[in-house]
Write a protein that binds this DNA or RNA. Structure first.
Length: 554
RNA sequence: UGCCCAAUAGUAUAAUGGUAGUACAGCAGAUUUUGGUUCUGCUUGUCUUGGUUCGAAUCCAGGUUGGGCAACCA
């Protein structure tokens, strides 16, 4: 009686292939990033898909870097990508590089020249574009198209041997200048770049285009199901053409819709711009939609995998609600994160009928959702900090917090009733005076009094301090990419709020990097790597759902 | 006005010729020592016009809308 999730269209294809004995029932996928930036949550979708399909069907997944453009690529990115894939919880079969195949690809290129299916063209980019025609008018051959095999071979070897400067000429496939598919109008296979490659060094001064590398790389690795995003659909006929003319292993490409997430951007170019211009502190800034950003913010790999599972796989363009991702991390952290008390915007509360100087050690349950979560000691005294927003001079009707005459429970402690308050010369409330009910102690309450609200607090004399970073969405609009004009015009100016001195309960001072907590009533928080001994920094991973905040806006 | 892809609640995603379901979001209520969690209930959907069929979200044709394609990027 298991509840079976229905198959997505790729799983259906694979199950049919297995049933029909295609590739002997073998399933081999690959995740093929270009090392020109950090991985983002959209890549996480692709990682979960590619590795997930192989896992489900007892197959393998290669991690292959499509490193065909040395001027944009860097080992820093290679390393971050490997770290992120590992962190996501997946194991690759092999780490491979398209640059491993440069020799083979070169041979493929000569093979096509020999077959009269490729030619060297010294036309300028503008000339090539013009001769290609437009989607509604056919292209015309450039003079180079009729060059002899021998001459093409000689020129291509000269290109390889560095006899020509960058941009002097390219190698083009001779496919079909009249094709309605613009990518088939004699696409470029090789270009000259006298550039240092992060892996092959200075061995090459010609580099294959992505379109001449990707399909063959899949083929060389005997990839059975080459899964990529929708924008590569029109490239598929070209990959199939190369595979057919080269007579090599026929990998098949399938396309799914990439992830778009509301209130952020997913283009590597734009993310790079945010990093380079200092709009964010780096690729792993917790406001970034990168895997490393989410990790630093406190997201778990499991929650991201759960998110990728829930959004599904299909072929239609989509814009996923950020709230779904937030739901996934809350769902996990609600079960696993210990509750602690931290006051981010303090106001002093003095209990007038509690003995000054006395310290009482209270017991606090760590996690009501986890029976084995244990408890901790919390010191209590007559002078506390509470959250400024938990007091109002003129409270509205359903305000279940403090105001003169109102009572609340102090979490894990006593019920207090507000009697008066003090303001400074600017009219800011500075101190609240309360009386407590001695019989109302948590766990042994005999007072018989019921209060509607419970608030968090820390004892002023025992509190430690920490920096707390509060994040909000990076963009003000739901879909920045769809807006007219510069995407940076839609950046949320309040995406980061730093609380330099938050008061935390003493038990929290022992927090380590990697720890996650629920700050009671405030949200889930994770220790940031900027933390130093005695100077903890917490990132807010996500707020708690807050129906009061929503209601009080009306 | 070429070619390709897509179209099911606000957002996603199922139903594969036979009762339009699920999740998130939203709304209302119950419970609660977190205005959290949990529980209950509710609102909202097959782009359109024809055709095939006993029966169409599903198949066919036309239209509409959205997206992609003319980088020495991937």
């Amino acid at each position: 009686m298991s509840e079976e999730r229905s198959l997505n269209f790729l799983e259906q294809i694979i199950e049919e292939d297995i049933a029909n004995g295609v590739n002997g029932g073998r399933v081999h996928t690959r995740f093929p990033p270009e090392p020109n930036g950090y991985l983002h949550i959209g890549h996480a979708k692709s990682i979960c898909l590619n590795f997930g399909l192989a896992q489900k069907y007892n197959g393998l997944t290669n991690l292959r870097f499509d490193d065909t453009n040395p001027v944009k690529e860097d080992v820093e990115y290679v390393e971050s990508i490997m770290e992120d894939v590992k962190w996501m919880g997946f194991q690759w079969n092999e780490v491979l590089f398209a640059s491993d195949y440069f020799d083979q690809l070169y041979i493929y290129a000569e093979t096509l020249i020999q077959k009269g299916l490729a030619y060297v063209d010294e036309s300028t980019p503008e000339q090539i574009a013009t001769f290609k025609g437009t989607p509604t008018t056919v292209g015309k051959p450039t003079p180079a198209r009729s060059r002899s095999v021998e001459e093409n071979l000689q020129l291509f070897r000269e290109m390889k041997d560095g006899k020509h400067p960058d941009g002097a000429m390219v190698l083009r496939a001779k496919v079909d200048l009249a094709s309605p598919n613009m990518l088939l109008r004699d696409p470029i296979m090789y270009r000259i770049k006298h550039a240092h490659h992060h892996r092959t060094g200075d061995k090459w001064c010609i580099y294959p285009m992505y379109d001449f590398a990707h399909g063959q790389s899949d083929s060389i690795e005997k990839i059975t199901h080459s899964v990529c995003t929708l924008e590569f659909i029109p490239h598929r006929p070209l990959y199939d053409w190369f595979i057919k003319e080269l007579d090599i292993f026929p990998s098949h490409q399938y396309e799914f819709a990439r992830l778009n997430l509301s209130y952020t951007v997913m283009s590597k170019r734009k993310l790079l711009q945010l990093v380079q211009e200092g709009t964010v502190t780096g690729w792993d800034d917790p406001r970034m939609p990168t895997i490393s950003g989410f990790r630093r913010k406190g997201y778990t790999a499991a929650s991201i995998r759960e998110f990728c599972e829930r959004i599904g796989i299909a072929k239609r363009d989509n814009l996923i609600d950020l709230s779904l991702l937030e739901f996934c991390i809350r769902e996990e952290l609600n079960k696993t994160a210990n509750r602690v008390m931290a006051v981010l915007d303090p106001i002093k509360l003095v209990i007038t009928n509690y003995e000054a100087g006395k310290t009482e050690i209270l017991n606090g349950e760590n996690n009501p959702e986890d029976p084995n979560g244990g408890s901790r000691e919390i010191p209590f005294s007559n002078t506390l900090y509470i959250e400024r927003e938990d007091f109002m001079e003129n409270p509205p009707k359903k305000f279940f917090r403090l105001g003169v005459g109102l009572s609340v429970r102090l979490k894990h402690a006593y019920i207090v009733k507000c009697e008066s308050f003090e303001k400074d010369e600017n009219g800011n409330v500075t101190t609240i005076y309360c009386s407590y009910i001695p019989e109302s102690k948590s766990g042994s309450d005999t007072s018989g009094i019921n209060v509607k609200g419970t608030i968090h607090w820390v004892s002023a004399a025992h509190a430690e301090t920490a920096e707390v970073r509060l994040y909000d969405r990076l963009f003000k609009v739901e879909n920045p990419a769809a807006e007219e004009g510069d995407f940076k015009d839609f950046i949320n100016p309040d995406s980061l709020h730093i609380v330099e001195k938050a008061y935390i309960e003493p038990a929290l001072a022992k927090a380590q990097l990697g720890d996650r907590f629920q700050f009671l009533r405030k949200g889930y928080f994770a220790v940031d790597p900027d933390s130093k001994p005695g100077a903890l920094v917490f990132n807010r991973t996500v707020t708690l759902k807050d129906t009061w905040a929503k209601e009080s806006k009306h």
